[in-house]
Design a protein around this nucleic acid. Structure first.
Lengths: 213, 213
DNA sequence: ACGCGTCTCCACCCTCGGGTGGAGACGGGA
DNA sequence: TCCCGTCTCCACCCGAGGGTGGAGACGCGT
């Protein structure tokens, strides 16, 4: 028996889904929530196998609720079931920890099949949103590589410390060299990367992926 | 007639795929390539509708080839067909611009169906790799949201210009206010975000996602 | 042996950035 | 009505940061 929690702000949807799942063998709707907060609270109490989560909800949206569920009730899986399927939503949902993404065009059979798949540790993406997902991935910035331009390892090191918010004096003591040396490295690397001051250098460091957010 | 280019370093795979597609109605294999370089060169000459791309190839791997195809021959779509389905490969492939990802367990029917789907502007993900894709998305760092702490819109604006590498004077003229005002905003926002100097502030801006890499 | 690049250090200069402590104007909420 | 937050501006101070022009030591490749 698969224990399901339904989170959706519209009553008709909650009741409709409850009906649909009642018809399917092997499902039990253990609770319904009308907003994200309630979804999290109920999930903590009821420990369902899976939460069918709408995205657009008052108080705390589905993305946020999913994120919180990930940390509060990690055993419970989340399947998003929503009307919207724009690029951002899809990506955000999976980033937040959802394991499935369905639209409200899905049939009862598709939903129940998706739930089974997810509990079987698969991921489920509605074919209709597949494309959005791939688009979103393709257009997102690719994390950068190695260290670029003519930067020497030492200079890159100084740069990354600088991006960490250290002053010249702090960098110096961190590297156990004089502050003069640090300034020297800094002037060299400024020239190489075309920076005028540390702010620009830090920006460069992030864009090049030398520093992890 | 769908015109296909096959890129794989193993001869048996190239010939096997050619056979399989020959059996399917509506496909024509217009060429085969044994490495990424050749794939790009042939695609430029033959302008196929789609490239079936292996990932592991000598000289220039499938990811790199896909990336180059995106910019050189944008009309040609890329479908990855490979043995490996680890998290990174999948994500990298889509980032590079692939529209489909199949494993070599796929049947001829599945492959041909996938090609049709992709040419119909859908994205195709082999169910077996679906999970890797979602995992990879979930474990990647999430770009941050709105603007946080007690930052006023104006302060956030100043911060983001600062992160863009502008000096106080430049920020001032950009916002059409005096430099003193900019300093004032800056001092306020430093206090709010706990920064000591602009380097730390820029770092903060990136980590909070106020500035796009 | 020689040259090259990197890392280290020094001294000097001066600007820009950061800190302090104000103050006036506007708008919205209590 | 008054208060509070935001945005604007000012004056003054000072030190860290950025720019210049060196120089010596080490390691590496030719």
């Amino acid at each position: 028996m698969i224990r399901v929690l339904i989170a959706d702000d519209q009553r008709v949807v909650r009741e409709g889904l409850t009906m649909v799942l009642a018809l399917m063998k092997g499902f039990e709707v253990v609770g319904t929530a009308a907003d994200g907060d309630e979804a999290v609270t109920l999930a903590e109490a009821l420990r369902p196998d899976v939460v069918l989560m709408d995205l657009r909800m008052p108080r705390c949206d589905g993305i946020e609720a999913t994120r919180r569920l990930r940390s509060e009730v990690p055993e419970t899986k989340v399947v998003v079931l929503t009307t919207y399927s724009d690029d951002r939503s899809v990506l955000d949902a999976f980033r937040a920890g959802a394991r499935g993404y369905l639209t409200k065009d899905a049939s009862g059979a598709q939903i129940s099949e998706a739930l089974r798949q997810v509990l079987d540790n698969h991921a489920v993406v509605d074919p209709a949103v597949q494309r959005h997902l791939i688009d979103a991935i393709a257009t997102e910035p690719t994390p950068r590589s190695r260290f670029p331009d003519g930067l020497t390892p030492r200079e890159a090191e100084v740069l990354s410390l600088m991006a960490g918010g250290l002053s010249n004096a702090e960098i110096a003591s961190h590297l156990v060299v004089s502050e003069g040396t640090v300034k020297s490295h800094i002037n060299h690397l400024f020239a190489k990367i075309g920076a005028r001051d540390r702010a620009q250098a830090v920006t460069y460091a992030f864009r090049q992926g030398l520093t992890e957010p």
